[in-house]
Write a protein that binds this DNA or RNA. Sequence first.
RNA 1: GUCCCCAUCGUCCAGGGGUUAGGACGCGGCCCUUUCAAGGCCGAGACCCGGGUUCGAAUCCCGGUGGGGACGCCA
Length: 546
Amino acid sequence: MSRARAQALAPIPMPTPRLRFAPSPTGYLHVGGARTALFNWLYARRMGGVFVLRIEDTDVERSSADMVTGILDGMRWIGLDWDEGPEVGGDYGPYFQSQRLARYRELGEQLVRDGHAYYCYCGGDKGGSSQEGSGSAGGAQSTSYGETEPPAADDAAWDEGDTPRGESWTYDRRCSRLTPEEVAAREAAKMPRAIRFRVPTGETTFHDLVHGDITFDNAHIEDFVALRSDGHPTYHLSVVADDIDMAITHVVRGDDHISNTPKQVLLYRAFGKPLPAFAHVPLILGPDKRRLSKRHGATSVTEYSRQGYLPEAMMNFLALLGWSPGNDQELFSRDELVAAFSLEGISSSDAVFNPEKLEWFSAQHIARMPAAELVRRIEPRLREAGLWPVKWSPGSSFDSHVDASLAQDRLDPGAWLARLIELLRPRAKRLTDFVEKGRPFLVDEVEYDADAVKKHLSSPEALAHLAAVRDTCAASEAFTAAALEPAIRALADARGVKAGVLIHPTRVAVVGRAESPGIFEVLELLGRERALDRMTRALQAVRPQG
RNA sequence: GUCCCCAUCGUCCAGGGGUUAGGACGCGGCCCUUUCAAGGCCGAGACCCGGGUUCGAAUCCCGGUGGGGACGCCA
């Protein structure tokens, strides 16, 4: 606190915050990565800093250009833009690690020269690891069922050997002890060599903005490979090299990187560079509390886009998954999030992804979206479903399949569509709902739901009511909700029934379903011709059975 | 197994030495109502356990338990 005061008195020039999101293009953008990107972006925007997008494609085998495109699209969909990176460039490029390989090699050699690393000729396998435990045959870790579980009671003997049970298999550093002659011999033999970092003894501590100080005993840190024998860097080297070269000030990433951080801290020190600020954000879990993955269903943001969730909702939802403004506000626009965001608000415990709440956010953002914008978002979906009712654009004429009587009523297609959307809006959770619930208004032939017909349109009484309603509607001078409602209510009185008794069959007749927006608005929107026609046809279709 | 992180309603969060422990999603009920929603109101629902510090602990400390993550020439 006193430091903050001192700053207020005599501002220390703070470098512009530079944050980055550094996805590996080995898969689509999933919600966990999206949230990490979001937190970085929010903080950069909040602080007036720079948001860098860097593609970590050093794993040539698993990376692909398609995935890069997918990730970029996913970020754009959520509403994240980047100041430096693919497609926009920047002063610290290139932003693909595959284009920075020379730099990593240079840095790798520098580590060796400075004594922080050494050449390792052990090859791709783990040769030189600790001996296998006496009981473990095979050594295939992934099928560890029986042999990794020692006998419970008489396990004292397991602890006696010089390879204590449970010791992690760390590289035994054999190549670090090679004499210059031995190294020369191997070089002469052109043996492939990797560069391994020489982890010093002692402890490594770093400060984490969400977890506080975290300390690791270096004894638990392996002499990790920094540069592979094929000349490609490992993640640790490339990340540190780039974060240094790109002047990254804040590293905000998933909790799963905490155990990588001490290795990277060691690299920063070996390079003689100051550490960035670290903030490790909690992970997003599935309902089973395990790390979110494909088997939990949709995890790619593209999939949520396809399912019609609003990107505003996704951003809002993701922001609140592991972060809080400190009060009870939940609904945020993008600008409000930027204004409210702080690293202090990030929580330290993992969060379970709750699709139902995401859907609620989506409904809330739909409810708040300006009408014109909503139409713009819905249009491509209606077109795709063959339901777009306007020939060219809002303001021109209706497509042929929409009732000519609408044109007679001198309704502008854009206005008509806007009214339809407003009727649907409070019932919509996703953009797909507008297609689904709007369909009866946009087709020539309604599909009749069998259950609805059975329930509301099968009895002789219901059909008689429907016929009466049709006649009343036909007689109504104006085909508007305001005119139809009193007329139909009066009809109900005259027939000695509640209005609902008339309305149910009418609804099923005109939209084919038991649910719809208010029936009077529905009738008005449908227009006289289509509404009467549907009632008539319903009567004809059902009568023979009644 | 080893190391690291974490622990408030089912879920997401707020709070935090003395509170009727707050909000949201979901759930139940009521209101509104022509249906379905939306909206409004009400309700059920939580501080992991054990020690310690303290007049007082959900809150601070320690231990346990539980959960998660990491232990690659993947990122």
